[in-house]
Amino acid sequence: MITQPQATTIPDPDEERRRIQTERLLAYRDDGPIVTALKGVLGRGLPPVPATLVAVLAIVALAVGDVLSSGAILLAPVLILVVLVVPSGPSDHLGRLDWLTPPLLRAAEFLTIILLGLAEGTPKWLLFVLLYVIGYHTYDTVYRTRQGIWPPAWLFRAGLGWEGRLLILGVGAAAGWLTAVTAVLTAYLLVLFSVESVVSWVRLDKASAQAHADQDLEQSPEEAAEQVTGDADQA
């Protein structure tokens, strides 16, 4: 587990606020190794909200048009999302509406998974478990950052990111192996996200308890007695 990124010099308060906002929204995006690898060659990136919104509308159009049946066409929603949204990764996400990017992206990911699963007849309970695991990871990330704690960078890479997960599922759907691919991916993500989350929170609790213990040891007997007396008076 790593803590909130810290600057090496005393930052300007406004610049620090913008930096933390960017870091938080990027964490909520849940980008994987593909976006990370391409950030250095994509310049400033596309505006994230328009790019993601266009991708969502295109995927909805494919669903309404009832063209997602079987075969290679099932890669279409995945490729649309990857082509349009991956280039938005380098954006600073400081626009007035850029906070909409993570929920739009998560909605697009979930919608694509559901459409692929329905097209290939994947058991609905299995799709639900996969969506639940990804949703739990998203909730855990949001809750941690609000506490000033940041998930380790390796977790986003190991979790494959939204783009990696969808590409794996898209290829599996196009090949007719979606149920098996979904089962393996779900099991992998379930173990990864649940174990890492439990271990991280346990370590945090231990560190917090140790900090309190160290603080108590530093107190003089008089200070400890005053604290006990004050607690008794309040009770």
Rank of each mutant, 00 (worst) to 15 (best):
G95A: 13
V171Q: 02
L111M: 15
L126W: 00
R144K: 07
L118K: 08
W99S: 10
Y136D: 04
A119N: 00
K124T: 14
H93W: 04
E163W: 02
E120F: 00
P103S: 07
L116I: 01
P102S: 13
T141S: 08
I149W: 10
T112P: 09
L100I: 04
V142W: 11
L118Y: 14
Y132S: 15
I149K: 07
D140W: 07
L160Y: 06
L127K: 06
V171D: 01
R146D: 15
G95V: 04
G159L: 01
V171A: 09
L94T: 07
A107I: 15
L104R: 03
L127R: 06
G121T: 08
W99A: 14
L111P: 07
Y139M: 11
R106M: 14
G117I: 11
F110C: 09
E109Q: 10
G117L: 02
R106F: 13
G89T: 11
G89L: 05
I168N: 00
A119C: 02
E109F: 07
I134N: 00
Y139S: 09
A107D: 05
R106T: 11
L126K: 01
G121E: 14
I113M: 05
L118M: 13
D98V: 08
G89Y: 15
A119S: 03
L97Y: 15
V85R: 07
L104S: 04
G89V: 14
Y143R: 14
D92G: 08
T141D: 10
R96V: 08
E120G: 00
L131A: 08
T122M: 12
L127D: 07
L160M: 12
